[in-house]
């Protein structure tokens, strides 16, 4: 098939990607299949080539044009601010970014607040808008450990049900922003594959907005 008639779609590995696959299947597209052990990274079907990539890499693939479309959480978009179109809220992977601390934590505005997070830019903007002086520590995982071990006063992290926080003696002290999966598009690809992209957008929105 002519490459101009093929859409390249970057999907996030993991549960969100699987959910979106199911939605695409419901929308009438031959959706990508996971091969179980996750070693096969490219699948073809119905004029769409699916790539499985690390969730935080989806905007990179799309912005650089390696993928025409992608699905990723709005948390990643807020953090990396890629130059892409954000075509639709897919109402999947719904959660929020929140500030959490050890139960009973009292913020002292007279002191610099030490914040551990993997969302450095989101955290900086949030605390700057509140005029709060912060020392932001970038971590890549197990963020909940930081206040427990005294590495930070608070954390800024994704909260879905709050169970992980509770299990570790933490609690949400402020919500920063709601998060959900978004369909994003490369700006140039959108210009030259408009009909294909609009058709997929309409189809998947029909399913995800039910």
């Amino acid at each position: 098939m002519d490459d101009r008639r093929i859409l390249n779609l970057a999907l996030p590995k993991g549960r969100l990607g699987e959910d979106v696959c199911a939605a695409l299947s419901d929308a009438g597209y031959c959706a990508a299949q996971s091969d179980g052990d996750g070693r096969k990274l490219i699948f073809d079907g119905d004029g769409i080539r699916y790539f499985w990539v690390k969730p935080s890499d989806v905007p990179v693939y799309v912005e650089r044009g390696a993928a025409d479309l992608g699905v990723c959480g709005s948390d990643i978009l807020l953090e990396s601010e890629p130059d892409v179109y954000e075509l639709a809220d897919l109402h999947r992977g719904v959660c929020r970014i929140a500030v959490a601390a050890k139960k009973g934590f009292r913020d002292d505005p007279g002191k610099t607040l030490c914040v551990a997070t993997k969302f450095k830019n989101v955290a900086r903007k949030y605390f700057d808008s509140a005029g709060r002086q912060t020392d932001i520590i970038k971590l890549n995982g197990s963020i909940e450990l930081a206040p427990i071990l005294g590495l930070s006063d608070v954390i800024v992290d994704i909260v879905e049900t709050g169970a992980t926080l509770r299990d570790n003696g933490l609690e949400v002290i402020a919500d920063v922003v709601p998060v959900s999966a978004r369909l994003i598009a490369n700006k140039s690809a959108y210009k030259f594959k408009t009909d294909l992209i609009k058709a997929l957008q309409a189809a998947i929105q029909t399913v995800t907005e039910r």
Binding site: R4, E63, R64, G65, D83, N186, K187, S188, A189, K191, F192
Partner: peptide
Amino acid sequence: GYVEGVPAA
């Protein structure tokens, strides 16, 4: 302005 094959304006 965009040209096909170049990912940005």
